[in-house]
Amino acid sequence: MSTVPVCPVCDAEVHLQGTTIVSELVVCDSCSCMLEVRSLDPLQLAEAPQEQEDWGE
């Protein structure tokens, strides 16, 4: 990964392991926001949606 990924919320650098996969949830170390790995190539991070009450279906 050439450029270092930054947190979309607080712009801090986000350190991803080599094993990161799409749809994975990672926590930003600086602002502790939950981030979603939207795509790997190009690398796209987005703030994960707030979880709402989860009923199971």
Binding site: T19, I21, S23, E24, L25, E36, A48, P49, E57
Partner: peptide, 10 residues
């Protein structure tokens, strides 16, 4: 040990 966000059509 990963947590994935599974989106669907609901």
């Amino acid at each position: 040990e990963k947590i994935l966000l599974r989106r669907d059509l609901s």
